[in-house]
Design a protein around this nucleic acid. Structure first.
Length: 278
DNA sequence: CATATGTCCTGAGAGC
DNA sequence: TGCTCTCAGGACATAT
């Protein structure tokens, strides 16, 4: 998403509006009138990312923080439909004339924060970014935790940027049972998790994300992502495992969320992946 | 304090 | 065909 909206750097915001919508408004902070007053005329100086949030940095040092959650999209092109359009920024002085936030389910949020608020409300609440965290850092945070590793990886205060789909893929690549308690993971396993995190996320970014069967996710130009074609376990129940060819992908529920894994090559016991160090 | 559960939202799909 | 029910998963509030 960040890459997709990068072309707006250098543009100036001439107007911010919340299109008329009969749905319950998403969390919007501050109200649209104040929001518009503070962003109007501001230049977009950078587009950043922190975990799963897109950050639009303005010349005033205020930052627009967009949290798309499940179905939110940041778009330069026209949205899939006008019904769920939540924010329109009108732009000038660059290649694009608009930046939109569209969200079908309305779980996403848009906030305009000062640097001080950004620290308190965003930075202080998030762990290190998934792409820059080192394996020792991850291990130190979780080695005494009794939580299951899959559940812990979804905690943004531990590490920022891993969602449900990617947690499953990461643990598959690591060869680790998603139900394994954090306090029973070995050093080499922590390292494998960190390395698999980089591999999965970089690959997903290269393919511009995953457009799942519901078709919701689109890139900034309203095109489909391609990573769904590379999922090894996510949403592949009963399919033969792409690695061992013997196991069949299984779905379980952890913390009210689907987990997909191969029961054959992601085992808690067994010599295949349990390296005795520590 | 750490961990677990409930909550919100909409549309797709299943089942009858 | 048209109805009801369930489910998807982000983050935060509340409960244990």
């Amino acid at each position: 998403m960040r890459r997709g909206v990068l072309p707006v750097v250098g543009s100036r915001i001439t107007k911010a509006e919340r299109p008329v919508c009969r749905l319950r408004p998403i969390l919007f902070e501050p109200n649209i009138r104040t929001f518009d007053r503070r962003v109007r005329g501001q230049e977009i100086v950078d587009v950043g990312r922190r975990g799963k949030r897109v950050m639009i940095h303005l010349g005033s040092h205020d930052v627009i923080v967009i949290e798309p959650r499940m179905t939110g999209l940041v778009l330069l092109a026209d949205p899939p439909g006008l019904a769920h359009l939540r924010l329109r920024l009108t732009l000038a002085g660059g290649p694009n004339d608009q930046l939109l936030f569209w969200d079908r389910r309305g779980l996403g949020t848009v906030r305009l924060l000062s640097p001080a608020e950004l620290k308190i409300k965003v930075d202080d609440k998030l762990g290190p970014d998934a792409l820059s965290m080192c394996h020792n850092e991850l291990r130190e945070k979780l080695k005494a935790s009794r939580r299951e590793i899959k559940v812990a990886l979804l905690d943004q205060a531990v590490v920022a940027g891993i969602g449900n789909l990617y947690a499953a893929e990461i643990l598959f690549l690591s060869g680790i049972d998603p139900r394994t308690r954090c306090d029973s993971l070995t050093r080499p396993q922590w390292k494998r998790i960190q390395q698999a995190t980089l591999a999965v996320l970089h690959e997903a970014i290269e393919h511009e994300g995953s457009t799942l069967s519901d078709g919701t996710y689109r890139n900034a130009l309203n095109g489909e992502g391609g990573y769904q074609n590379y999922h090894r376990v996510y949403d592949r129940v009963d399919e033969p495992c792409s690695r061992c060819k013997k196991g069949r992908v299984r779905r379980i529920v952890q913390a009210q969320r689907s987990t997909f894994f191969c029961p054959k090559c992601q085992q808690r016991r067994g010599l295949h992946h349990t390296v005795r160090t520590n």
